[in-house]
Design a protein around this nucleic acid. Sequence first.
DNA 1: AGATAAATGCAACAATGTTGCACTCATTGT
DNA 2: ACAATGAGTGCAACATTGTTGCATTTATCT
Lengths: 140, 140
Amino acid sequence: MSHQFHHSAEDLIRHNGGKVTAGRVGILAVLLAEQQAITHREIEQRLPQTLQLDRVTLYRVLEWLAGKNLIHKVSSDDRVWRYHANRDVSSHQHAHFKCTGCAQVICLETLPVERNWQLPAGYRFQEIELTVKGLCASCC
Amino acid sequence: MSHQFHHSAEDLIRHNGGKVTAGRVGILAVLLAEQQAITHREIEQRLPQTLQLDRVTLYRVLEWLAGKNLIHKVSSDDRVWRYHANRDVSSHQHAHFKCTGCAQVICLETLPVERNWQLPAGYRFQEIELTVKGLCASCC
DNA sequence: AGATAAATGCAACAATGTTGCACTCATTGT
DNA sequence: ACAATGAGTGCAACATTGTTGCATTTATCT
Ligand SMILES: [Mn+2]
Ligand SMILES: [Mn+2]
Ligand SMILES: [Zn+2]
Ligand SMILES: [Zn+2]
């Protein structure tokens, strides 16, 4: 885990008016260092040994970070939330790719889908959630 | 619950080489009578009082019906599977709509999405899972 | 340093779904 | 009609993910 991410994390948290705690910084640093959207478990594993957090705290920190728009949650058919640091890409709506082999999830750049859906009369559109499934390079 | 569905259900099960049990018939009849994709709980509630099934049996029946392609499962961000009888529409890939107010899920007819996704090099496309979120007519 | 609210840890809980195993019963053949 | 058989079921126990309440700790401000 590079100092870079640790420092960025600290900065982002402070600028969002939250207490700068070891847990928050560590968790956000993990997410900033990660390309993929990762689970609760995977975050735990990537945290430094010196930083052992309660599961509940982890969940609460993730909720807080999501509320501050520093990260976003990705839902999946395996009933497990995955989390990913927000970058330029993730500020707008985007699709996700999930490997059916190894379950890794990555964010895709685009969301090339029509917005004018033929919804039943009286229904109102809000947003689209799209997951492309397939095999990643390692699983092909 | 109309006799119609009960009879259709019995037929469908028999023609798929499974034992015609009260549970299977009752569950499939419920799903045939329903427009929306409904949850485990909702199915239970719609079953006749005379037919009390164990939760496990319900899950196993649903799994069996899905394996026989008589129904399909719909995943959702609330970590609850919903089930829907297969009709013409559902034989091919289709999108779903989920109301953010009341959590109802319906199947949409079309899936107007490009198939040629710009996936990272070496990745292979399999399928798309798309949920349109919004408000249903009652929740608008 | 002391006050304060925010953050954390722990225990308990909830919801959804799965597994193993003994028992039941729908179907088949006689 | 009856018996044999294996598919289907019920029950208990378990697994996983996530949430809630409350007492304790700690980052931050003065
Ligand atoms: Mn994403
Ligand atoms: Mn459907
Ligand atoms: Zn993979
Ligand atoms: Zn609604």
